[in-house]
Design a protein around this nucleic acid. Structure first.
Lengths: 257, 257
DNA sequence: AGCTGTCGGTACGATTGCGAACATTTTTGC
DNA sequence: GCAAAAATGTTCGCAATCGTACCGACAGCT
């Protein structure tokens, strides 16, 4: 990173605090190109996203995109009967609102925050500009498209053929990968809407995981107690999806939250 | 279309016969840009794809892509237990092998031909060149990414929450949209592997559709007898996916097959 | 004509998960 | 402190689907 860029960053204590330069993998990749970094940097905004916050409704114009730092955002389909189902999740490995780029610019889904935290918000037009500027940004963004496609395909398979128990493990591991910590604020109701099952179904499966000492659960607080147990219980789907965003093990010791 | 382009096409009776200039919607869009048309035209190859032909295996390098004209190609996941499931299908509205563009260039899935027919084959590198050349090609291709994402999301929901009957209707309508005709060569075994159900389950559902006079079935030959009945029986998913590739009603009268 | 493999129809028990309750406990708001 | 709301635990009957198997019909081949 050259010195003019360095000074630009030093002017933004908010960004420094958020750990922007390394916590979102896609953003880090974009910033590896100095020209893009210089152009995007002044446009970044650190925002705090809270659980159940709605980022886009179906049909909304996508005017901003988000690079999650430690939050997880879900793409939800809401069916005619009112039940909701998560089809994808995005965390620090990707970008929320990719669909906005160079297209109709309207959301096809509801996009809700599943795990609250911090994200970098940028107006879509600035990202678009980077994409058209050079091959690097385009490649990085196409990679997130592909990542999304892999996730969607596998979840399609998983939801059709695997048990609630397996799907729950899968989902928990995916969340765990995206959040830096073992404590998760998640109600069973919420998990149910994400995994695509009844709340009562989650209660039973989560109960078994508790009995196996894999997780501990208490009123909206879920603690990942023994991840290896989850990894042994999960179906093949997890590893296939994981392979696509394989990231270095989270290490946040460098950041003061 | 300017005259030099015209003469280029006239030099290729094979392409003319295949109806290339209008039968694949994405290709038509790309050809609207004269520069791209001029560059791609000499590289196009008309190929005939037969049922169950494997276009890519998982891990294959994607060296060619296909623009289906009247065939349908499926992206399949093969699970550890050997069962297969379709997660996406592509016909004349799109491009097979999009994932190849500007990325690892390796397939993440098995890609099989579900309905045989004709397609235009192009080496990946030529398409890549077009994409990097101007915004139009990029936009057109990103649109197919989005289309794929919409299909995958909706199938994710559909497979999880809807009955085999609804899913079967959905799948048949999607195939029907992509093929110019009411006669389909499809065994129940094959449909089962696409819809993600047992063969016996398909027999029952297809039996009901026969009783409703929606389809007629005889040893690997399926005839769409009354499409409106299918449309009344299908779940909301079909229309949501359909909305994304809404194309003019197929009219092949202009082509001699 | 006879053999063989494919395809479709059918059956049956087992299982999973659903829909809809209701009970209990904890948190929250007043 | 108390009522209301939220979160979890539990139950029951039922529908959908699975796994598996068997049978008959048909098509292609010799």
């Amino acid at each position: 990173m050259n010195s003019s860029l360095q000074s630009l960053i030093l002017d933004r204590p908010d960004l420094l605090r958020s750990g922007i330069t390394s916590r979102n993998e896609l953003l880090r990749e974009l910033f590896a190109v100095p020209a893009i970094a210089r152009e995007l940097l002044p446009e970044l905004k650190v925002v705090s996203l809270t659980v159940n916050e709605v980022l886009y409704e179906q049909g909304d114009k996508l005017e901003v995109v988000y690079f999650p730092l430690d939050c997880v955002v879900s793409g939800l389909s809401i069916m005619e009967d009112g039940t909701t189902m998560e089809t994808s999740m995005t965390g620090r490995e990707g970008l929320v609102g990719v669909s906005s780029l160079l297209g109709s610019g309207r959301s096809r889904q509801w996009v809700w925050v599943t795990v609250g935290g911090t994200a970098i918000q940028v107006e879509t037009k600035f990202i678009e500009k980077s994409v058209l500027q050079g091959e690097e940004a385009l490649k990085a963004l196409l990679k997130t498209y592909r990542s999304l496609i892999v996730q969607l395909s596998q979840r399609c398979v998983c939801n059709t053929r695997h048990t609630i128990m397996e799907r729950l493990c899968c989902w928990l591991l995916m969340i765990h990968d995206r959040v830096g910590g073992n404590n998760l604020s998640l109600t069973q109701e919420m998990i149910a809407s994400r995994v695509g099952a009844r709340r009562a179904g989650i209660t039973v499966a989560a109960g078994m995981l508790q009995a196996m000492k894999a997780i501990a659960y208490r009123r909206g607080q879920l603690y990942i107690q023994d991840r290896p147990v989850l990894e042994r219980t999960v179906c093949e789907c997890y590893n296939l999806m994981r392979g696509d965003y394989k990231s270095p093990p989270p290490d946040y010791s460098a950041f003061s939250l």
